[in-house]
Write a protein that binds this DNA or RNA. Structure first.
Lengths: 229, 229, 229, 229
DNA sequence: GATGAATGAGGATTCATTCAT
DNA sequence: AATGAATGAATCCTCATTCAT
C-alpha cells in the first residue's frame, strides 16, 4: 500500500489476470472440444464465462491464439501428470509402465485435449509442427536415456532405443485417438496391461517358456502347437 | 451400334458419369488436404476441374457429402491396396507383415488421405463413427480369424486375438499420423521392419536366446546383462 | 445464337455486367456522398439497388475499390463534360472561359462528386495521389499549349504558363469546395463571370482605361481616385 | 505562498489543466492528421501522451469533441499568425499581400491542420458549417472594409468587394489543398508572388503597358503581338 | 445437362465509452 | 484525480447453396 502511493490510477492485478487467463483457457478447451473450432464463436466462450466478448479478446488477440494457447496448456498438464506418476517408483521398467499408464489415464480424463490435438492439425495446417510433437520431442530424450541404461543392464533387447521410442510413441498416440473416436471397450487398467504385454513380450511364441521375475506376470504360455513340429 | 438402335436420343453415359465422379473426388481430396476443409470453397474445386460450380453440385448435393465421399473413396482404395499385397503370399505370418507394409505404404503414397481422416473428425464431430473406423470394423474379422488359426498352431502366443488387433491397429494408426505430422526419418521398409520386430518379439530380454526359423531374422540378442544371474 | 451453340451453360452477359457496374457506381457515389464513407455499409448500397450484398461484392471486391471506382467514374464524366463544352467555340480565350464554366457547372450538377473527392483524401491517405490530381495532371498539358499560343499572339501576358494554370487550377479547386461546403450565394453564371473578370483583369486599377475588343466586357473602370494624385 | 495561505487543500491548478488541454489537442491534431480520424483510437492519443485513456476523456467527453476542438485550435492559431504578419505594415495593399503570405505560410508549417479540415468535412457531414468557414465568415468583414477603402481611393477596381473576397478566398483555399495533396513545386515566396501577380494584374494584355509605382514590380509586358494590329 | 449470377446468414474483430479501484 | 479493465454494438467480408438461362 505505502509503496504504491506513487502510482496513479487503477493498479494492474497480475494475480487476477493469470487466474482469468487460466479460466478462459479451460472453458475454451471444453467448448472447442465439444463444438469444434469453427462452430465455437468467441462469443460462445465469453457467454459461458459470463464475460464480454471484448474481455476475452483482451487476453487473447485472436481466436486462433486462444485455441493454440489452450492446446499448449493441455500439453503442460499432460507433462505434469506423467511426471507425478513416474516419480512413484524407482525401477526403470516400472517407470516406463507408469508413464504409459499416466499418459492413457490423462487423455481418458481429458478427452477434450484429444479433440484439440485433432483440431489443431485440421485448422492450422500451416503451423510448422503440431504442439503435441513439439512436446514429444522435448521429452523423448529422458526416456531414451533410461532405455539405454536398461539395454546396458541386459533387461531390454539390444536394439536402437529410438526404434523403441518411435514404436511405443506411435502406439500410444494411436491408442489415444482410437479410444476417443471409436470408444474403448475395456477398462483403462486392462488396456494398459494388454499394451505393456505386447510391447514387452511381442506376439510370437518362443521355443522356451518365459519366466521373468518382475512384478507383472507377462508372456503367456503358448499352445501345444509349439510342441508340434 | 446395332444393339443400341432401340435407344432414342442421347444415351446416358454411365461410364462418363462414373469417371467424372471419380475425377471430382480425387481433385476434391487433393484440395481439401492441401487447404483444409473450411478453406476449400466448392468454387476452388470446380476451378481446378475446369467445371462450373453448379456441375459439381449435380454430382454431390452438398460440400459435406463431397468431402465424405472423398474419404470413403480413400478407404476403398486402402482396402484394395492391402488385399493386393496380402495375396502375394500364403504364409499367415507373412500375410500379417505384408498387410502392415501395404498399409504404411498406402498412406505414404497418399498423404492427402491422412489429412482427410483428420479433417473428417475435426469438422464432423456429430457423425456417429469416423469412416476409418467403420472400415476397420468391417475388415478386422478376417485378421482375427487368421490370428486365431496361428494361435492354434502355436505360432502366436495364446492371448485373446482382440488384444492383438487392438494393439497392432492402434500402433499402425498412430504411426500413420506421426509419419504425416512429424515426418518420418527412416525408410518405409526400415520402419516396417522395426515395427514388426517389436510387435513380434517385444522389447524385453529372454533368459534364453531366440532362434526362430522364419524368413526375417528378428529378436536381437541381448547384452551381457542376460548372462547375469 | 448459332455461334453460341457450342457453349455450355449460362452465357456471360457482358452488356448486363457493364450496365450494372455503372448502376452500382452511381448509386454508391450518391450514398457515399450523402452519408459519408464510414457510415455507408455495402449493405446500404445493395439495399438501395435492390440487390444482395454479395452481388455488389461480385462487381467490386472491397468497399474501398467500390469507392475508388466511383471517384474515377466521376472524373471521367467531368472530363467529358468539359470537352463537350469547349468544342462549342474555336476562340482560345473563349475555350478557356467555357472550360471554367463547364467545370463549375459540372460540380454544381454533381455535388456528390465533391464529397467523394474530400472523402477519398480523408479515408485513403495512403494512396499516392488523389484521383483528382491524376486527372488534372493528365489534362493540364493541352491548356498550357493553348496559353502558350495566346502568349505568342500577344493576347495573354508573357508569364510562364505553368504559373497561370497553377493559379487558375487552384482557384477553381477552391471555388468548388467553397460552393459545396459554404453554399454559393450567386448564380453559376454570375460566379463564372466574376471569376473570369478577376482572372483576366486583376483587381488593381490601371493608369489608363482598358478597352478590349472581346465579346465580354471586362475590366470595369476605376473610381475617380485614379484622378486624385 | 503567503497569498495562498488562505486556500485549503490542493489548489486547482488551472494553469496545469490549460496546458494539458493544449498538449492533448496538439498531439491529437498530429495523430488525426497522420492516421486519419477513424484509424486514430483514443487509446493511441493517450499512449502518445503517456496518459491513461480515461484521462483524455476527462478533458474531452467524446472523441468527436476532441477532434473538433483540435480544429478550432488550429483556426485560432491561423488567425493569430495572419494578424501578426499584417501588423507589420500600414499600407492596405501590402496588408492584403501580407495576409495572403501569412496564410500560405501557416498551412505550409502546419500541414496537419489541412488534414483536419478535410477530415472534419468527411466525418462530420451533419455539422452545419465547417469550422474553417465559420472562421472565414468571422474575419471576412475587415478585409471587405479595407477593400472598400481602396476602391474609394481608386487603387482597386470598382467592383463589389464581395466579389473580390470570394475569388481570392477560393483561390487561397484551393491553393492550400493543392499544395498539400499534390505537393508544391515552387518556393512559398515564389508562389505568393505568382498569385499576387495574377490577382492584382490578371492574365490578359492591355493595349497600353502598365507602369505602377508600387513596391512590387508586377504586370509583365506583353509580347510583340500587342504591336501587331 | 451445364453454368455462373445472385443471395444473405454468419462470424471475427474493433474501439468508443464506462466505471471500479 | 487518474487509470485501464470491461463491454458489446457495429461492420466488413465469405461462401454454401439456389436457380434462371
Amino acid at each position: 500500500m505505502t509503496a504504491d502511493r506513487m502510482r496513479r490510477g487503477r493498479p494492474k492485478d497480475k494475480q487476477l489476470a493469470a487466474r482469468r487467463r487460466a479460466e478462459i483457457l479451460d472453458t475454451a478447451a471444453k467448448l472447442f472440444a465439444e463444438r469444434g473450432y469453427p462452430n465455437t464463436d468467441v462469443q460462445v466462450v465469453a457467454d459461458e464465462l459470463r464475460l464480454g466478448k471484448g474481455t476475452v479478446y483482451r487476453y487473447f488477440p485472436t481466436k486462433r491464439e486462444l485455441f493454440l494457447a489452450a492446446v499448449d496448456r493441455g500439453m503442460s498438464r499432460l507433462h505434469d501428470a506423467v511426471e507425478a506418476r513416474v516419480a512413484e517408483t524407482d525401477d526403470p521398467v516400472q517407470q516406463i509402465a507408469q508413464a504409459m499408464r499416466a499418459y492413457l489415464a490423462f487423455f481418458d480424463n481429458h478427452p477434450e485435449i484429444v479433440e484439440l490435438l485433432i483440431q489443431e492439425r485440421a485448422e492450422f495446417k500451416d503451423r510448422k509442427k503440431p504442439t503435441y510433437f513439439e512436446h514429444r520431442d522435448a521429452n523423448i530424450g529422458r526416456w531414451q536415456a533410461l532405455l539405454r541404461r536398461l539395454t546396458e543392464e541386459g533387461r531390454v533387447r539390444d536394439i536402437p532405443v529410438e526404434r523403441i521410442t518411435d514404436v511405443v510413441g506411435d502406439l500410444l498416440y494411436g491408442t489415444l485417438f482410437t479410444n476417443h473416436f471409436a470408444g474403448r471397450r475395456k477398462s483403462l487398467e486392462e488396456q494398459a496391461r494388454d499394451i505393456l504385454d505386447i510391447v514387452f513380450e511381442g506376439i510370437l511364441c518362443r521355443p522356451n517358456p518365459v519366466h521373468d521375475g518382475q512384478g507383472e506376470t507377462l508372456g503367456t504360455q503358448c499352445k501345444t502347437g509349439s510342441e508340434k513340429p
